[in-house]
Nucleic acid binder design. Structure first.
Lengths: 230, 230
DNA sequence: CAAATTCGGTAGCCATGGTTACCAAAATTA
DNA sequence: TAATTTTGGTAACCATGGCTACCGAATTTG
Protein backbone atom coordinates (compact mmCIF):
# COMPACT_ATOMS: atom_id res chain seq x y z
CA UNK A 1 0.00 0.00 0.00
CA UNK A 2 2.90 2.37 0.66
CA UNK A 3 5.09 1.02 -2.17
CA UNK A 4 3.84 3.75 -4.46
CA UNK A 5 6.14 6.23 -2.70
CA UNK A 6 9.32 4.14 -2.51
CA UNK A 7 11.31 6.70 -4.48
CA UNK A 8 10.34 9.48 -2.09
CA UNK A 9 11.36 7.40 0.91
CA UNK A 10 14.83 6.89 -0.51
CA UNK A 11 15.29 10.67 -0.66
CA UNK A 12 13.99 11.21 2.83
CA UNK A 13 16.55 11.79 5.58
CA UNK A 14 14.19 10.25 8.07
CA UNK A 15 14.48 6.80 6.48
CA UNK A 16 18.18 6.94 5.67
CA UNK A 17 19.88 3.61 6.18
CA UNK A 18 16.64 1.70 6.53
CA UNK A 19 16.22 -1.16 4.08
CA UNK A 20 13.32 -0.43 1.67
CA UNK A 21 11.85 -3.86 2.31
CA UNK A 22 11.81 -3.23 6.01
CA UNK A 23 9.95 0.05 5.55
CA UNK A 24 6.72 -1.85 5.03
CA UNK A 25 7.26 -3.58 8.35
CA UNK A 26 7.97 -0.23 9.97
CA UNK A 27 4.82 1.23 8.44
CA UNK A 28 2.74 -1.72 9.61
CA UNK A 29 3.95 -0.85 13.07
CA UNK A 30 3.64 2.94 12.83
CA UNK A 31 0.34 2.99 10.96
CA UNK A 32 0.93 6.33 9.20
CA UNK A 33 -2.04 8.18 7.80
CA UNK A 34 -1.78 9.40 4.22
CA UNK A 35 -3.96 12.31 3.14
CA UNK A 36 -4.29 14.39 0.00
CA UNK A 37 -5.09 18.07 -0.17
CA UNK A 38 -6.12 20.52 -2.83
CA UNK A 39 -4.23 23.69 -3.55
CA UNK A 40 -4.59 26.29 -0.73
CA UNK A 41 -6.22 23.77 1.58
CA UNK A 42 -5.04 23.72 5.21
CA UNK A 43 -2.87 20.72 6.00
CA UNK A 44 -2.44 21.75 9.63
CA UNK A 45 -3.89 24.66 11.59
CA UNK A 46 -1.89 26.43 14.30
CA UNK A 47 -3.27 25.70 17.77
CA UNK A 48 -5.16 22.57 16.74
CA UNK A 49 -4.32 19.08 17.98
CA UNK A 50 -1.04 17.75 16.68
CA UNK A 51 -1.64 14.67 14.56
CA UNK A 52 1.87 13.58 13.73
CA UNK A 53 5.14 14.26 12.01
CA UNK A 54 4.42 15.24 8.40
CA UNK A 55 6.30 13.92 5.38
CA UNK A 56 5.52 15.42 1.98
CA UNK A 57 5.00 12.61 -0.56
CA UNK A 58 3.88 14.71 -3.55
CA UNK A 59 3.32 18.38 -4.29
CA UNK A 60 4.40 21.27 -2.07
CA UNK A 61 3.36 22.69 1.26
CA UNK A 62 4.09 26.06 2.89
CA UNK A 63 4.84 26.28 6.60
CA UNK A 64 3.43 29.54 7.92
CA UNK A 65 3.89 31.22 11.26
CA UNK A 66 1.53 33.87 12.55
CA UNK A 67 3.02 36.31 15.08
CA UNK A 68 1.30 38.24 17.84
CA UNK A 69 0.61 41.22 15.60
CA UNK A 70 -1.19 38.94 13.13
CA UNK A 71 1.40 39.05 10.35
CA UNK A 72 1.91 35.79 8.50
CA UNK A 73 5.50 34.81 7.86
CA UNK A 74 6.52 31.98 5.53
CA UNK A 75 8.88 29.73 7.43
CA UNK A 76 9.54 27.14 4.74
CA UNK A 77 8.38 25.59 1.49
CA UNK A 78 8.56 21.79 1.64
CA UNK A 79 8.88 19.47 -1.37
CA UNK A 80 8.59 15.65 -1.56
CA UNK A 81 10.83 13.87 0.95
CA UNK A 82 10.89 16.84 3.31
CA UNK A 83 9.32 16.96 6.73
CA UNK A 84 7.47 19.40 8.92
CA UNK A 85 6.47 19.31 12.57
CA UNK A 86 9.55 17.33 13.58
CA UNK A 87 10.31 19.72 16.39
CA UNK A 88 6.76 19.96 17.63
CA UNK A 89 6.35 16.18 17.49
CA UNK A 90 8.39 15.49 20.60
CA UNK A 91 8.31 18.74 22.48
CA UNK A 92 5.21 17.58 24.32
CA UNK A 93 3.06 20.61 23.54
CA UNK A 94 0.45 18.61 21.66
CA UNK A 95 -0.66 21.37 19.29
CA UNK A 96 0.64 22.71 15.99
CA UNK A 97 2.83 25.76 16.66
CA UNK A 98 2.67 26.70 12.97
CA UNK A 99 0.16 26.39 10.18
CA UNK A 100 0.77 24.30 7.06
CA UNK A 101 -0.97 24.97 3.77
CA UNK A 102 -0.98 23.12 0.44
CA UNK A 103 0.96 25.28 -2.00
CA UNK A 104 -0.05 22.92 -4.79
CA UNK A 105 -2.26 19.86 -4.73
CA UNK A 106 -0.31 17.51 -2.50
CA UNK A 107 -0.14 14.25 -0.57
CA UNK A 108 1.19 14.07 2.95
CA UNK A 109 2.01 11.20 5.30
CA UNK A 110 1.56 11.68 9.03
CA UNK A 111 3.61 9.52 11.39
CA UNK A 112 2.09 9.39 14.89
CA UNK A 113 4.68 10.76 17.31
CA UNK A 114 3.68 8.40 20.09
CA UNK A 115 4.19 5.33 17.92
CA UNK A 116 7.64 6.48 16.84
CA UNK A 117 9.04 6.60 20.35
CA UNK A 118 6.79 3.85 21.74
CA UNK A 119 8.05 0.33 22.21
CA UNK A 120 7.95 -2.06 19.28
CA UNK A 121 9.63 -5.44 19.55
CA UNK A 122 9.15 -6.56 15.95
CA UNK A 123 11.22 -3.99 14.04
CA UNK A 124 13.66 -3.11 16.74
CA UNK A 125 16.68 -2.39 14.53
CA UNK A 126 14.96 -0.19 11.93
CA UNK A 127 12.86 1.44 14.54
CA UNK A 128 15.91 2.46 16.50
CA UNK A 129 17.55 3.72 13.32
CA UNK A 130 14.47 5.85 12.73
CA UNK A 131 14.85 7.39 16.16
CA UNK A 132 18.58 7.93 15.69
CA UNK A 133 17.96 9.63 12.34
CA UNK A 134 15.36 11.81 13.94
CA UNK A 135 17.81 12.76 16.68
CA UNK A 136 20.33 13.81 14.09
CA UNK A 137 17.78 15.79 12.08
CA UNK A 138 16.40 17.64 15.06
CA UNK A 139 19.92 18.36 16.33
CA UNK A 140 20.74 19.76 12.90
CA UNK A 141 17.67 21.98 12.99
CA UNK A 142 18.62 23.19 16.43
CA UNK A 143 22.13 24.02 15.22
CA UNK A 144 20.66 25.92 12.27
CA UNK A 145 18.46 27.93 14.58
CA UNK A 146 21.48 28.58 16.73
CA UNK A 147 23.31 30.05 13.74
CA UNK A 148 20.27 32.17 12.93
CA UNK A 149 20.31 33.49 16.48
CA UNK A 150 23.91 34.54 15.98
CA UNK A 151 22.96 36.61 12.96
CA UNK A 152 20.04 38.23 14.67
CA UNK A 153 22.11 38.96 17.77
CA UNK A 154 24.48 41.19 15.82
CA UNK A 155 23.39 44.68 16.72
CA UNK A 156 24.83 46.94 14.03
CA UNK A 157 23.71 46.82 10.43
CA UNK A 158 27.33 47.08 9.35
CA UNK A 159 28.13 44.02 11.47
CA UNK A 160 25.29 42.04 9.93
CA UNK A 161 26.33 42.88 6.39
CA UNK A 162 29.97 42.12 7.13
CA UNK A 163 29.12 38.79 8.76
CA UNK A 164 26.91 37.86 5.82
CA UNK A 165 29.48 38.81 3.19
CA UNK A 166 32.26 37.01 5.09
CA UNK A 167 30.17 33.85 5.20
CA UNK A 168 29.53 34.05 1.46
CA UNK A 169 33.23 34.69 0.90
CA UNK A 170 34.21 31.67 2.96
CA UNK A 171 31.64 29.49 1.23
CA UNK A 172 32.55 30.60 -2.29
CA UNK A 173 36.28 30.70 -1.62
CA UNK A 174 36.62 33.80 -3.76
CA UNK A 175 36.45 37.55 -2.97
CA UNK A 176 34.25 37.97 -6.05
CA UNK A 177 30.84 36.32 -6.03
CA UNK A 178 27.18 36.72 -6.83
CA UNK A 179 24.78 37.51 -4.00
CA UNK A 180 22.21 34.73 -3.69
CA UNK A 181 19.56 37.21 -2.54
CA UNK A 182 18.05 40.38 -3.95
CA UNK A 183 18.31 43.52 -1.84
CA UNK A 184 14.75 43.06 -0.66
CA UNK A 185 15.37 39.51 0.43
CA UNK A 186 18.71 40.26 2.02
CA UNK A 187 17.12 43.07 4.00
CA UNK A 188 14.43 40.65 5.19
CA UNK A 189 16.99 38.01 6.08
CA UNK A 190 19.08 40.43 8.13
CA UNK A 191 15.91 41.86 9.62
CA UNK A 192 16.60 45.46 8.52
CA UNK A 193 14.93 47.88 6.12
CA UNK A 194 15.92 47.92 2.47
CA UNK A 195 16.98 51.57 2.20
CA UNK A 196 19.13 51.22 5.32
CA UNK A 197 20.80 48.18 3.81
CA UNK A 198 21.51 50.07 0.59
CA UNK A 199 22.86 53.06 2.48
CA UNK A 200 25.26 50.99 4.57
CA UNK A 201 26.46 48.93 1.60
CA UNK A 202 27.27 52.16 -0.23
CA UNK A 203 29.19 53.42 2.79
CA UNK A 204 31.25 50.25 2.77
CA UNK A 205 31.86 50.85 -0.93
CA UNK A 206 32.84 54.49 -0.37
CA UNK A 207 35.32 53.38 2.26
CA UNK A 208 36.91 51.03 -0.24
CA UNK A 209 36.03 47.88 1.67
CA UNK A 210 33.87 46.35 -1.04
CA UNK A 211 32.84 46.97 -4.63
CA UNK A 212 29.53 45.93 -6.12
CA UNK A 213 27.14 46.32 -8.99
CA UNK A 214 23.68 44.91 -8.44
CA UNK A 215 24.19 41.37 -7.19
CA UNK A 216 27.86 40.95 -8.08
CA UNK A 217 30.11 41.61 -5.10
CA UNK A 218 33.84 42.02 -4.77
CA UNK A 219 35.52 42.18 -1.39
CA UNK A 220 38.51 44.53 -1.55
CA UNK A 221 39.77 44.62 2.03
CA UNK A 222 39.00 41.23 3.53
CA UNK A 223 40.63 41.90 6.89
CA UNK A 224 38.75 45.16 7.32
CA UNK A 225 35.46 43.42 6.57
CA UNK A 226 36.31 40.59 8.93
CA UNK A 227 37.02 42.96 11.80
CA UNK A 228 33.63 44.60 11.31
CA UNK A 229 31.66 41.33 11.47
CA UNK A 230 30.05 40.84 14.85
CA UNK B 1 30.33 6.10 43.20
CA UNK B 2 27.49 7.90 41.40
CA UNK B 3 24.90 7.07 44.04
CA UNK B 4 25.44 10.41 45.72
CA UNK B 5 23.40 12.10 43.01
CA UNK B 6 20.50 9.65 42.83
CA UNK B 7 18.00 12.34 43.71
CA UNK B 8 19.21 14.55 40.84
CA UNK B 9 19.02 11.66 38.39
CA UNK B 10 15.41 11.10 39.32
CA UNK B 11 14.73 14.74 38.41
CA UNK B 12 16.75 14.58 35.21
CA UNK B 13 14.78 14.35 31.99
CA UNK B 14 17.63 12.47 30.37
CA UNK B 15 17.20 9.52 32.73
CA UNK B 16 13.44 9.61 32.99
CA UNK B 17 11.91 6.17 33.02
CA UNK B 18 15.21 4.43 33.65
CA UNK B 19 15.25 2.27 36.76
CA UNK B 20 17.63 3.74 39.39
CA UNK B 21 19.32 0.38 39.80
CA UNK B 22 20.01 0.19 36.11
CA UNK B 23 21.62 3.61 36.12
CA UNK B 24 24.80 2.15 37.58
CA UNK B 25 24.93 -0.28 34.67
CA UNK B 26 24.36 2.57 32.22
CA UNK B 27 27.11 4.60 33.88
CA UNK B 28 29.49 1.66 33.79
CA UNK B 29 28.88 1.66 30.05
CA UNK B 30 29.00 5.41 29.46
CA UNK B 31 31.84 6.23 31.88
CA UNK B 32 30.81 9.82 32.70
CA UNK B 33 33.26 12.29 34.22
CA UNK B 34 32.16 14.45 37.18
CA UNK B 35 33.79 17.86 37.87
CA UNK B 36 33.17 20.74 40.26
CA UNK B 37 33.53 24.46 39.60
CA UNK B 38 33.57 27.68 41.59
CA UNK B 39 31.27 30.62 40.92
CA UNK B 40 32.16 32.42 37.66
CA UNK B 41 34.56 29.68 36.62
CA UNK B 42 34.40 28.47 33.02
CA UNK B 43 32.80 25.05 32.66
CA UNK B 44 33.28 24.97 28.90
CA UNK B 45 35.00 27.43 26.60
CA UNK B 46 33.73 28.12 23.07
CA UNK B 47 36.07 26.66 20.46
CA UNK B 48 37.72 24.16 22.78
CA UNK B 49 37.43 20.39 22.39
CA UNK B 50 34.00 19.03 23.11
CA UNK B 51 34.18 16.70 26.08
CA UNK B 52 30.64 15.43 26.30
CA UNK B 53 27.02 16.15 27.01
CA UNK B 54 26.85 18.10 30.30
CA UNK B 55 24.40 17.41 33.11
CA UNK B 56 24.20 19.84 36.03
CA UNK B 57 24.27 17.90 39.32
CA UNK B 58 24.43 20.85 41.73
CA UNK B 59 24.39 24.64 41.44
CA UNK B 60 23.64 26.60 38.28
CA UNK B 61 25.40 27.23 34.99
CA UNK B 62 24.80 29.88 32.30
CA UNK B 63 25.12 28.96 28.64
CA UNK B 64 26.52 32.02 26.90
CA UNK B 65 27.21 32.86 23.29
CA UNK B 66 29.86 35.50 22.78
CA UNK B 67 30.21 37.13 19.37
CA UNK B 68 33.20 38.90 17.84
CA UNK B 69 32.21 42.28 19.24
CA UNK B 70 32.17 40.81 22.74
CA UNK B 71 28.42 41.02 23.27
CA UNK B 72 27.17 38.21 25.43
CA UNK B 73 23.85 36.61 24.71
CA UNK B 74 22.43 34.33 27.38
CA UNK B 75 21.16 31.17 25.75
CA UNK B 76 20.01 29.40 28.91
CA UNK B 77 20.33 29.11 32.67
CA UNK B 78 20.60 25.49 33.75
CA UNK B 79 19.78 24.11 37.20
CA UNK B 80 20.34 20.60 38.64
CA UNK B 81 19.00 17.88 36.36
CA UNK B 82 19.29 20.08 33.27
CA UNK B 83 21.72 19.58 30.39
CA UNK B 84 23.84 21.57 28.01
CA UNK B 85 25.80 20.68 24.88
CA UNK B 86 23.17 18.21 23.68
CA UNK B 87 23.05 19.85 20.26
CA UNK B 88 26.79 20.02 19.82
CA UNK B 89 27.01 16.37 20.81
CA UNK B 90 25.63 15.27 17.45
CA UNK B 91 26.79 18.08 15.21
CA UNK B 92 30.11 16.33 14.56
CA UNK B 93 32.09 19.55 14.92
CA UNK B 94 33.94 18.36 17.99
CA UNK B 95 34.21 21.78 19.65
CA UNK B 96 31.99 23.77 22.00
CA UNK B 97 29.90 26.23 19.93
CA UNK B 98 28.98 28.10 23.13
CA UNK B 99 30.59 28.92 26.43
CA UNK B 100 29.30 27.63 29.76
CA UNK B 101 30.00 29.43 33.02
CA UNK B 102 29.27 28.54 36.63
CA UNK B 103 26.56 30.92 37.77
CA UNK B 104 27.06 29.59 41.30
CA UNK B 105 29.46 26.99 42.63
CA UNK B 106 28.42 23.84 40.82
CA UNK B 107 29.06 20.20 39.95
CA UNK B 108 28.67 18.86 36.43
CA UNK B 109 28.65 15.39 34.84
CA UNK B 110 29.90 14.91 31.27
CA UNK B 111 28.56 12.00 29.19
CA UNK B 112 30.68 11.09 26.14
CA UNK B 113 28.55 11.66 23.03
CA UNK B 114 29.98 8.78 21.03
CA UNK B 115 29.07 6.27 23.71
CA UNK B 116 25.47 7.46 23.82
CA UNK B 117 24.59 6.73 20.19
CA UNK B 118 26.98 3.77 19.87
CA UNK B 119 25.61 0.27 20.10
CA UNK B 120 25.56 -1.36 23.48
CA UNK B 121 23.99 -4.80 23.88
CA UNK B 122 24.15 -5.00 27.64
CA UNK B 123 21.82 -2.16 28.56
CA UNK B 124 19.71 -2.15 25.42
CA UNK B 125 16.40 -1.16 26.98
CA UNK B 126 17.76 1.64 29.15
CA UNK B 127 20.12 2.75 26.45
CA UNK B 128 17.31 3.14 23.97
CA UNK B 129 15.28 5.00 26.55
CA UNK B 130 18.22 7.34 26.95
CA UNK B 131 18.23 8.08 23.23
CA UNK B 132 14.48 8.57 23.18
CA UNK B 133 14.69 10.96 26.10
CA UNK B 134 17.45 12.82 24.32
CA UNK B 135 15.23 13.19 21.27
CA UNK B 136 12.55 14.76 23.39
CA UNK B 137 15.02 17.11 25.05
CA UNK B 138 16.68 18.23 21.82
CA UNK B 139 13.26 18.88 20.30
CA UNK B 140 12.42 21.01 23.29
CA UNK B 141 15.66 22.96 22.91
CA UNK B 142 14.97 23.50 19.24
CA UNK B 143 11.56 24.87 20.15
CA UNK B 144 13.22 27.18 22.66
CA UNK B 145 15.67 28.46 20.08
CA UNK B 146 12.78 28.96 17.73
CA UNK B 147 11.13 31.11 20.35
CA UNK B 148 14.39 32.98 20.86
CA UNK B 149 14.58 33.72 17.14
CA UNK B 150 11.09 35.14 17.33
CA UNK B 151 12.13 37.42 20.16
CA UNK B 152 15.22 38.63 18.40
CA UNK B 153 13.30 39.24 15.19
CA UNK B 154 11.07 41.75 16.97
CA UNK B 155 12.48 45.13 16.10
CA UNK B 156 11.18 47.47 18.76
CA UNK B 157 12.25 47.22 22.37
CA UNK B 158 8.67 47.77 23.45
CA UNK B 159 7.63 44.83 21.31
CA UNK B 160 10.28 42.59 22.84
CA UNK B 161 9.31 43.49 26.39
CA UNK B 162 5.62 43.04 25.65
CA UNK B 163 6.18 39.66 24.01
CA UNK B 164 8.34 38.51 26.91
CA UNK B 165 5.87 39.63 29.56
CA UNK B 166 2.96 38.10 27.66
CA UNK B 167 4.75 34.77 27.53
CA UNK B 168 5.44 34.86 31.26
CA UNK B 169 1.82 35.80 31.83
CA UNK B 170 0.59 32.89 29.78
CA UNK B 171 2.99 30.49 31.46
CA UNK B 172 2.19 31.62 35.00
CA UNK B 173 -1.52 32.00 34.36
CA UNK B 174 -1.60 35.12 36.51
CA UNK B 175 -1.14 38.83 35.73
CA UNK B 176 1.10 39.05 38.81
CA UNK B 177 4.37 37.14 38.74
CA UNK B 178 8.07 37.21 39.56
CA UNK B 179 10.51 37.85 36.71
CA UNK B 180 12.87 34.88 36.37
CA UNK B 181 15.71 37.16 35.24
CA UNK B 182 17.43 40.20 36.68
CA UNK B 183 17.41 43.39 34.61
CA UNK B 184 20.92 42.68 33.40
CA UNK B 185 20.03 39.19 32.30
CA UNK B 186 16.74 40.22 30.74
CA UNK B 187 18.55 42.93 28.77
CA UNK B 188 21.05 40.31 27.58
CA UNK B 189 18.26 37.91 26.69
CA UNK B 190 16.39 40.50 24.65
CA UNK B 191 19.69 41.69 23.20
CA UNK B 192 19.27 45.32 24.27
CA UNK B 193 21.11 47.57 26.69
CA UNK B 194 20.15 47.64 30.34
CA UNK B 195 19.35 51.37 30.62
CA UNK B 196 17.20 51.21 27.51
CA UNK B 197 15.29 48.28 29.00
CA UNK B 198 14.73 50.21 32.22
CA UNK B 199 13.64 53.29 30.36
CA UNK B 200 11.08 51.45 28.25
CA UNK B 201 9.72 49.46 31.19
CA UNK B 202 9.17 52.72 33.04
CA UNK B 203 7.36 54.16 30.05
CA UNK B 204 5.06 51.15 30.05
CA UNK B 205 4.52 51.75 33.77
CA UNK B 206 3.83 55.47 33.26
CA UNK B 207 1.25 54.59 30.62
CA UNK B 208 -0.52 52.35 33.11
CA UNK B 209 0.09 49.15 31.17
CA UNK B 210 2.13 47.42 33.86
CA UNK B 211 3.23 47.92 37.44
CA UNK B 212 6.45 46.60 38.92
CA UNK B 213 8.87 46.75 41.78
CA UNK B 214 12.22 45.09 41.21
CA UNK B 215 11.39 41.61 39.92
CA UNK B 216 7.71 41.49 40.81
CA UNK B 217 5.51 42.36 37.86
CA UNK B 218 1.82 43.09 37.56
CA UNK B 219 0.17 43.41 34.19
CA UNK B 220 -2.62 45.99 34.37
CA UNK B 221 -3.87 46.23 30.80
CA UNK B 222 -3.40 42.79 29.26
CA UNK B 223 -4.99 43.66 25.93
CA UNK B 224 -2.84 46.76 25.51
CA UNK B 225 0.29 44.75 26.24
CA UNK B 226 -0.78 42.03 23.83
CA UNK B 227 -1.32 44.49 21.00
CA UNK B 228 2.19 45.83 21.48
CA UNK B 229 3.86 42.42 21.25
CA UNK B 230 5.31 41.80 17.82
C1' DC C 1 8.76 47.08 -29.24
C1' DA C 2 6.11 49.74 -25.83
C1' DA C 3 4.15 49.56 -21.33
C1' DA C 4 4.28 48.05 -16.86
C1' DT C 5 6.65 46.28 -13.12
C1' DT C 6 10.49 45.26 -10.36
C1' DC C 7 14.75 46.57 -8.54
C1' DG C 8 18.04 49.34 -6.31
C1' DG C 9 20.25 53.94 -5.04
C1' DT C 10 19.45 58.42 -2.79
C1' DA C 11 17.99 62.06 0.45
C1' DG C 12 15.79 64.24 4.45
C1' DC C 13 13.56 63.70 8.67
C1' DC C 14 13.31 62.06 13.15
C1' DA C 15 12.17 58.13 16.53
C1' DT C 16 14.41 54.58 18.77
C1' DG C 17 17.66 53.08 21.54
C1' DG C 18 22.91 52.86 22.73
C1' DT C 19 26.30 55.13 25.73
C1' DT C 20 27.97 57.18 29.69
C1' DA C 21 27.69 58.63 33.99
C1' DC C 22 25.61 59.12 38.39
C1' DC C 23 22.90 57.88 42.37
C1' DA C 24 20.15 55.34 45.77
C1' DA C 25 18.39 51.08 47.43
C1' DA C 26 19.14 46.33 48.34
C1' DA C 27 21.91 42.52 49.10
C1' DT C 28 26.10 40.52 50.33
C1' DT C 29 30.23 40.18 52.91
C1' DA C 30 33.59 41.11 56.43
C1' DT D 1 27.06 46.57 62.10
C1' DA D 2 29.90 48.71 58.70
C1' DA D 3 31.89 48.26 54.24
C1' DT D 4 31.44 46.58 49.76
C1' DT D 5 29.12 44.93 45.86
C1' DT D 6 25.22 44.32 43.18
C1' DT D 7 21.17 45.94 41.29
C1' DG D 8 18.22 49.09 39.07
C1' DG D 9 16.37 53.83 37.95
C1' DT D 10 17.46 58.32 35.71
C1' DA D 11 19.13 61.86 32.51
C1' DA D 12 21.66 64.07 28.61
C1' DC D 13 23.60 63.35 24.35
C1' DC D 14 23.81 61.65 19.91
C1' DA D 15 24.56 57.67 16.40
C1' DT D 16 22.09 54.33 14.12
C1' DG D 17 18.81 53.10 11.30
C1' DG D 18 13.59 53.17 10.03
C1' DC D 19 10.39 55.54 7.03
C1' DT D 20 8.74 57.97 3.08
C1' DA D 21 9.21 59.52 -1.21
C1' DC D 22 11.42 59.85 -5.53
C1' DC D 23 14.02 58.54 -9.57
C1' DG D 24 16.44 56.00 -13.06
C1' DA D 25 17.79 51.51 -14.70
C1' DA D 26 16.80 46.81 -15.57
C1' DT D 27 13.58 43.31 -16.30
C1' DT D 28 9.28 41.36 -17.48
C1' DT D 29 5.00 41.33 -19.90
C1' DG D 30 1.62 42.15 -23.45
Amino acid sequence: MFNKWLKVYSECDLFRGIDPEELNVVFTCLKPKVSSYEKNEWVAVAGEKFNGLGVVLAGEVVVVKENAAGDRVIMAVNTPGEMFGEMAAFSGEGVWPVAVMARTACTVMFLPAGKIVGNCERVCASHRLLITNLLEIVSGKAMMLHRKVEYLAIKSLRGKISAFLMEQYKRMGSPTFILPLKRNELADFLNVSRPSLSREMCRLRDEGVIEFHRDSIKIIRVEALKSMAG
